[in-house]
Design a binder for these strands. Structure first.
Length: 293
RNA sequence: GGCGCGUUGACGGAACGGUUACGUAGAGGUCUGCAAAACCUUUUAAAUGGGUUCGACUCCCAUACGUGCCU
């Protein structure tokens, strides 16, 4: 491996849920002394294993994984926290002479690292709570009164509140990805992807997501953001007998397919992603990584 | 056979004689401290055939289908 560890590239693998990122990354990382940082906003939560299709114990033993089980559901964790964590890990991995792999489907998380986002001020919880209790119209008025420019997405309460919190400070990012990074996206045929999502849903239920959700809700309740991730609210409905088992499964598949769509919508905007099929990503990255040895 | 009720878009589901509710799904999109979240835009309709009316998804008649009660 290169002596100057700053020359070790950052390998970034993105793609929608169920596109095969995880298994590919593990395969490559195993072969080329890699360590994986999961850029996934859900697998940071402890206990949410089956429902988030987290890498299993064996996979985690095969290759060092980072970014998993960082906080408990209900605890505060944001992109900014993730970025800080990831940058630190990338540096540490390189200093060991290993290759950092940033792998995940949360586009915002990936971009925050790759484009070195500069975040605004951290939320003032007191102010935020106050603002959250206001209607969207009141928030608009508040903005007008205080000279705060409304965000493009001005009907989105969250975004308006954040604009207020940022108080005019504009977000910053790199125009192009950080140097020495290789970004690849896994392309999938839509029908194939949707079928994979369906099959994976079956597996999740067979592996006991329902039981997992039950024990999580006992511990953390249903009302936190983490537990609002697509699958868990559906299980909640099922447990409350609002829907039956078949319906629950059906709904889950639909929700996951929608998730994949949104992920793709985000990723599409990044012009620096090289889109390839899983096999081609494998070949391409293998070639790149072989050069380092 | 008789009497009654119903038939709205992929699904659920309202109102109304003349502005094609709404929800879900579908399609497209937004996105820098909750992002598997939140939000925005948008396609698809009136069982069939007649009639009344300036105008009918909305009123009337018939037919079909479904449903309930009665013989």
């Amino acid at each position: 491996m290169a002596n100057d560890y700053t020359k070790i590239p950052l390998i970034v693998i993105v793609g929608p849920t169920a596109s095969g990122k995880t298994s590919l990354a593990i395969k490559l990382a195993k072969k080329y002394k890699g360590e994986i940082i999961c850029a996934d906003s859900r697998s940071v939560y402890k206990g949410m294993n089956i429902g988030t299709a987290k890498p299993n114990q064996k996979e985690q033993c095969d290759v060092p994984h980072w970014g998993l089980d960082l906080v408990e559901p209900g605890e505060y964790f944001s992109v900014a926290d993730f970025k800080k964590y990831a940058i630190e890990k990338i540096d540490q991995i390189r200093s060991r002479g290993n290759v950092p792999f940033l792998v995940g489907g949360t586009g915002l998380y990936v971009d925050s690292v790759v484009f070195d986002y500069k975040f605004g001020p951290i939320a003032d919880i007191e102010l935020r709570t106050k603002l959250q209790h206001m209607e969207i119209i009141e928030l608009h008025n508040y903005c007008i009164k205080n000279g705060i420019v409304l965000p493009e997405n001005f009907k989105n309460k969250r975004y308006v509140i954040r604009s207020i919190e940022r108080n005019g400070i504009k977000p910053e990012k790199l125009v192009r990805p950080m140097s020495n990074s290789i970004i690849v996206g896994i392309t999938t045929n839509k029908d194939d992807l949707y079928n994979r999502i369906e099959r994976r849903a079956e597996q999740l239920f067979a592996s006991g997501v329902v039981e997992e959700a039950m024990s999580l809700s006992d511990k953390y309740g249903w009302d936190n953001e983490a537990m609002k991730s697509n699958i868990y609210p559906i299980i909640h409905q099922y447990l409350d007998s609002e829907i039956d088992y078949i319906e629950m499964k059906k709904k889950f598949v639909i929700l996951d397919q929608r998730l994949a769509k949104r992920q793709l919508t985000w990723l599409k905007r990044n012009k620096f992603i090289q889109w390839l099929s899983v096999d081609d990503v494998n070949k391409y990255l293998s070639n790149q990584l072989a050069l380092l040895i």
